[in-house]
């Protein structure tokens, strides 16, 4: 089986791996790079649990091939709080109890971060539509939406 050598940047670090051309970026992140924070809930781009940023754009990493990461920049949940300080979204998810099982949480956090980078002052409706690609079965979304709105308000105040 032929593998392809890929060089990419993940959470600011240069990494290299050998990928089977059929492997997804999610497979590579989880199985080759040990970054298991991105989750596989469906493998078909329907649940958003594998959300990552690819060159700053929100993607489902299960729909991107590992070899497509060549020369790109990947940001995952593991890079969201590089130091001791949590990202305001992570802190607000904790404070609002916006997670029950926590499995969808990394995807929601990455997707919410992408939202607030593009729209720092979203309405509730904008949050709900932006996050419509992330499935949560535990919370009914109420506390997640509140956490995102609260984080946005705090980040605007800080900026």
């Amino acid at each position: 089986m032929t593998t392809i050598r890929v060089t990419t940047e993940v959470n600011g670090d240069r990494v290299e791996f050998l990928a089977d051309p059929r492997e997804t970026l999610l497979d590579v992140l989880r199985d080759k790079l040990g970054l298991t924070g991105s989750k596989e809930g469906c493998g078909t781009g329907d649940c958003g649990a594998c959300s990552v940023l690819l060159d700053g754009r929100l993607v489902s990493s299960c729909l991107v091939l590992g070899v497509e990461a060549e020369g790109r920049k990947v940001e995952t949940i593991e890079g969201m709080a590089p130091g001791e300080e949590l990202h305001p979204l992570q802190r607000k998810f904790l404070e609002h109890a916006a997670l029950q099982c926590g499995f969808c949480t990394p995807g929601f956090l990455v997707a919410s971060k992408a939202l607030l980078e593009r729209n720092p002052d979203p309405t509730e409706e904008e949050v709900r539509y932006w996050l419509a690609g992330n499935l949560c079965r535990c919370t009914g979304y109420d506390k997640i939406v509140r956490a995102v709105l609260d984080a946005a308000a705090e980040m605007r105040g800080a900026g």
């Binding site: 596989e40 904790l94 956090l109």
Partner: peptide
């Protein structure tokens, strides 16, 4: 009281290990 959950930090940082995360 509305305390933070003790497993929360692991779950917002991607560190929490779920079924498929073991090797």
């Amino acid at each position: 009281t509305r305390v933070l959950r003790p497993d929360g930090l692991d779950k917002v940082t991607g560190r929490a290990r779920y079924g498929a995360d073991f090797a």
